[in-house]
Design a protein around this nucleic acid. Structure first.
Length: 466
RNA sequence: GGCCCGUUCGUCUAUCGGUUAGGACGUCAGGUUUUCAACCUGAAAAGAGGGGUUCGACUCCCCUACGGGCUGCCA
């Protein structure tokens, strides 16, 4: 029986949590969690120039919002640099690596010349087979002594069998001249030490996998299962960039998409389980597998995102929604909800959540319950009201005050009265709309009455209309 | 330039040699609701192109085109 499955997400903290990275994290998390395995988090902060604590914080926050939890503390790759150097020295001792004394300028010149002549720019170090006795007392890097013959084969769970001719792969630098490890070495060492069994990551790393596999082989370590997933593209099919708008995950929270909807949409983007479109987290964990991942990059479709999010909002518990909306308001830097506003929102939620795709939309529809009381009537709009519509409201008021009434009963009562007056239901919304200061979005008359159908409010509204 | 990956309706996708190529989002047309939304019915909409292999290809192979990635002492 195979050992426990261990996956990981290993972003570099150089900005926000990219939406594509979030999806990669999600895939890893789903794969591990669906199989009782572990999901680890490692911050690849070896590039000291570009790594910032703020960016790390943004990644942590983003993952938490998405509902992705990791086992144990997250690992700083930078802090493991001594171990990386140790492995580099071990490879040296085993003959799997060598010291290269070429200067960056020399290498660049060689590449330049190769480019000019249209030759391959792969750099072949003259120090590969040099006698250690001839080594100068100068700065050096440690390069992997990669095989020059044959090919390196990657068995990828998504891409299939991918072959690389070894003469196309150069001897990558493992340890820089300042003694710090490169990413290529660090990932392999960390993944091995952390016991990672499945490397699920963007297919921009597919080429790297070949060289990383060589390190595993040089060290005699067992290779993980590789799974290179296609990147997410913008609606125009180009690589996702700032030009497309929201790239960072936190932007999606600020836009008011529920986390559950994001999880569902992101999981479904580039992965399929038959015709399943809308699913719960439990189903996602149960269904997710590497086989269902597509090989082509998928484009972000905000319409579909909204649709999925709308379904999740409708399916969520009212209290959870109020809570998540409060978090959304904070993320979007909008005014927080008062306790009474939260109470009102909770009361109206059953009628609001079925009609909203995003939180801002839900809040817009809930204006009538969130608005400060007493509601100041819009006189100009009130002028347009007919005596008949005022009469209808007065007639209905006593019935609407019965808080135990179900929506259907109120609908019927309203319909009865409206019919008796020869008016449509929509007309009844008019005086109410006028009373709540001319909002362009008219709430359902039924929902509005249900929520504000308390004696004093109804009285105020009818007075305003009269 | 070299190497690697990809290509089914506008979008996300199903199909694992034999289907009227299915679903979802979006779009359009009706219907219901005299508001927004929701909902119901219907419609338009796809295998990049060219060669093979096969009794039979969206499915397998090759070429071309297009898209993407890598080609750093970045990750």
């Amino acid at each position: 029986m195979p050992a426990e499955i261990v996956t990981r997400f290993a972003p570099s903290p150089t900005g926000y949590l990219h939406i594509g990275g979030a999806r990669t994290a999600l895939f890893n998390w789903l794969y591990a969690r669906g199989r009782g395995g572990k999901f680890l988090l490692r911050i690849e902060d070896t590039d000291r120039e570009r790594s910032t604590p703020e960016a790390t914080e943004a990644i942590l926050k983003g993952l938490k919002w998405l509902g992705i939890d990791w086992d144990g503390d997250w690992v700083s790759q930078f802090e493991r640099r001594d171990r990386h150097a140790e492995v580099a020295r071990e490879m040296l001792a085993r003959g799997g690596a060598y010291k290269c004394f070429c200067t960056p300028a020399e290498i660049e010149a060689a590449r330049e010349a190769a480019r000019a002549e249209g030759r391959s720019t792969l750099f072949q170090s003259p120090w590969r087979d040099a006698d250690p006795a001839s080594h100068p007392d100068a700065p050096f890097v440690i390069r992997l002594k990669a095989p020059r013959e044959g090919e390196t084969v990657i068995e990828d769970a998504v891409q299939g069998t991918v072959r690389f001719r070894n003469d196309q792969l150069d001897d990558m630098v493992c340890l820089r001249s300042d003694g710090t490890p490169t990413y290529m070495l660090a990932v392999v060492v960390d993944d091995h030490d952390m016991g990672v069994t499945h490397v699920i990551r963007g297919d921009d790393h597919l080429n790297n996998a070949a060289r990383q596999a060589q390190v595993y082989r040089a060290m005699g370590w067992e290779e993980p299962v590789w799974a290179h997933i296609p990147l997410i593209h913008g609606p125009d099919g180009k690589k996702l960039s700032k030009r497309h708008g929201a790239v960072g995950l936190e932007a999606y929270q600020a836009l008011g998409y529920p986390a559950a909807g994001m999880r569902n949409y992101l999981t479904r983007l580039g992965w399929a389980h038959g015709d399943a479109e809308f699913f719960t987290d439990e189903q996602a964990r149960e269904w997710f597998d590497l086989k269902g991942i597509g090989r082509a990059p998928a484009r972000l479709d905000f319409k579909k995102l909204e649709n999925i999010c709308g379904q999740h909002i409708a399916a969520m518990a009212d209290a959870d929604l109020v809570e998540e909306i409060a978090a959304y308001l904070e993320a979007a830097e909008r005014p927080a909800l008062s306790q009474s506003q939260k109470d009102g929102l909770l009361r109206a939620m059953p009628h609001l959540k079925e009609r909203s795709k995003t939180f801002p939309e839900l809040i817009e529809k809930a204006h009538f319950v969130l608005a400060a009381r007493p509601i100041v009537p819009d006189e100009k709009a009130g002028e347009a009201l007919t005596p008949v519509s005022r009469g209808i409201l007065r007639e209905l008021t006593p019935q609407l005050q019965n808080a135990s009434w179900q929506r259907e009963e109120i609908e019927q009562a309203v319909a009865r009265v409206a019919e008796a007056h020869g008016m449509g239901l929509g007309k009844i919304a008019a005086p109410l709309r006028a009373a709540i200061a001319g909002r362009t979005v008219t709430p359902s008359v039924f929902d509005m009455m249900l929520v504000i159908g308390r004696e004093e409010t109804i009285a105020r509204l009818t007075d305003a209309a009269a």
